[in-house]
Design a protein around this nucleic acid. Structure first.
Length: 466
RNA sequence: GGAGCCAUCGCCAAGUUGGUAAGGCCGUAGAUUGCAAAUCUGCUAUUCACCAGUUCGAGUCUGGUUGGCUCCUCCA
């Protein structure tokens, strides 16, 4: 397995800190709003990573956090009148459902910030004791970046004169403009806050992840985890700060490898909350099946920017349709073992920093070969069994192709419509038998008008929803 | 202002140690079919934004130019 490390900016062979085990931590969502396609892509990217490592016989532990306390959440609590718990658990549940709809496997550990306050407090206290962190009059606790000589080694952002360059207004109590909050004291009129030895307040965003990683992973004396993942926008300052805190708190590096996924753009523009052009997963799922959406979102390498548009989505759906048509041809049958060269080719591609394009090309080739052979010998049982095994292998590794093929082509069709289609097909076949092609074509037009495509095969007339 | 990424056929897109351009969509010719659809086969980039350099040889390395994007502010 080779993965691209964003810190060293090069592809590196993956050597886990404990042999045959891989620990992965992914920065999850802040739960105050619905998730958008960017969250989906990030999740999908690391889902693919975890699945690939599992297929390579690693024992994989994935942790993905929920940031369930921060200013935006507090603001929304006050706006809606809901309790903190009501609000955050709602969005956590929605997130989980949406991720499942996209075929993302649940993380093994899903820590919440509010359930990790002790770990945070002790990490902060430890940094204060070492004089790496300091408490200011307001009660805020800041990290003194000047105390960490490796600060900047993650993102390579060397901000020499940040005070002049930055557009941020700095708290004048900070020792250094680069210093960032580990803990934010709450205003007197704020009741959503937590008591600690240094002040009543809430955790800083960067600190949460560091504390949760230390809480849930054992690590070694070199690293806490193998891979830390997240969106490309988190590299700086979020991951830089995480790394600094952890380095100073534990005496070793936080993560051996850092991976960052690219953005999802809509109309060539970055999708973000502040731009207000978010495409929410819930809205996408109203129009497209979760598996189709997954297949599309993973079809472009995770580090590239992703330009979402319907034409490309339909293109990728066509490839998935072909896979399911092949599955239909080999159903029903019992699977045997996947074809070894095929399996190897897919694993080689995915082991190369998740080279999905090569994997997809390999799948297209497998489909083409299988169809070709089935054209020659439709009753080739051995081929059918192997083909089904190939598809099942893909379903496990890439998370698509696992559905029963006939139902795949009937997604969104209710029983009444289904009956109507089937009776029309019978009517058409009767007309065909009588060689009344004018009538049979008219019936076909009627079926097409319903958005259904039909195809005459040796096994009878099959239909698909377009 | 600082840091960095990207530019390959009409569209999407692969191309780790430089060795002579994967795959999909679309289009097109054919096999098959009552006609379609599906499936299969053939064809479809002397060329990788542009210029210069290194080299026997560069899409791949170096320098520059142009164009697009991101981070430095909550953000996946």
């Amino acid at each position: 397995m080779h993965i691209y490390d964003s810190v060293q900016k090069t592809k590196l062979p993956f050597k886990s800190i404990v042999p045959h085990k891989a620990s992965i931590y992914i920065c999850g969502p802040t739960v105050y709003d619905d998730s958008h396609l960017g969250h989906a892509r990030s999740s999908l990217s690391f889902d693919l990573l975890a699945r690939t490592l599992k297929a390579l016989n690693y024992e994989v532990i994935v942790a993905k956090n929920f940031t369930d306390i921060d200013d935006k959440i507090i603001k929304k609590v006050h706006e809606t009148g809901q309790s903190l718990k009501e609000l955050t658990s709602h969005y956590i549940n929605v997130y989980r459902q949406e991720m499942r709809a996209l075929g993302v496997k649940d993380a093994d550990i899903e820590p919440k910030a509010t359930e990790s306050l002790e770990a945070m407090e002790s990490m902060i206290q430890g940094l204060i004791d070492k004089d790496i962190a300091y408490v200011v009059n307001s009660g805020d606790v800041y990290f003194d970046t000047a105390k960490d000589e490796n600060y900047g080694s993650i993102s390579h952002q060397v901000v020499a004169d940040e005070e002049n360059q930055s557009r941020v207004e700095h708290n004048t109590e900070k020792r250094n403009p680069k210093d960032f909050a580990l803990w934010k004291a709450c205003p007197a009129n704020e009741d959503i806050c937590f008591e600690t030895s240094f002040s009543k307040g809430r955790p800083g965003w960067h600190l949460e992840c560091s504390a949760m990683i230390e809480k849930h992973f054992e690590g070694t004396n070199e690293y806490s985890i193998d891979i830390h993942g997240g969106g490309a926008d988190l590299l700086f300052p979020h991951h830089e700060n995480e790394a600094a805190q952890s380095r100073c708190a534990t005496g070793h590096e936080l993560s051996k490898y850092w991976m960052h996924n690219g953005f999802v753009n809509i109309n060539g523009e970055k999708m973000s909350k502040s731009l207000g052009n978010s495409f929410f997963i819930k809205d996408a799922l109203k129009v497209y099946d979760g598996e189709v959406l997954r297949n599309y979102l993973i079809s472009i390498h995770y580090r590239n920017d992703f330009n979402f548009n319907e034409e490309d989505l339909l293109n990728s759906k066509k490839r998935l349709d072909k896979l399911y048509r092949l599955k239909k041809r080999v159903t029903p049958t019992k699977s045997s073992k996947p074809n070894i060269p095929f399996q190897k080719a897919i694993m080689t591609a995915m082991s190369d920093d998740l080279n999905i394009s090569v994997a997809l090309a390999t799948i297209d080739e497998m489909i083409s070969n299988a169809n070709d052979k089935l054209d020659e010998n439709p009753k080739d049982k051995g081929l059918k069994k192997e083909t089904l095994a190939n598809i099942e292998f893909l379903a496990e590794l890439l998370g698509f192709g696992g559905k029963e093929p006939f139902s795949y082509f009937q997604i969104g069709i209710d029983a009444v419509t289904k009956n109507k289609i089937e009776s029309l097909i019978i009517a058409r076949n009767e007309a065909k038998k009588a060689k009344d092609y004018e009538k049979s074509d008219a019936v076909r037009d009627e079926i097409s008008a319903m958005g259904i495509s039909i195809m005459d095969t040796a096994d009878g007339t099959l239909w698909e929803k377009l």
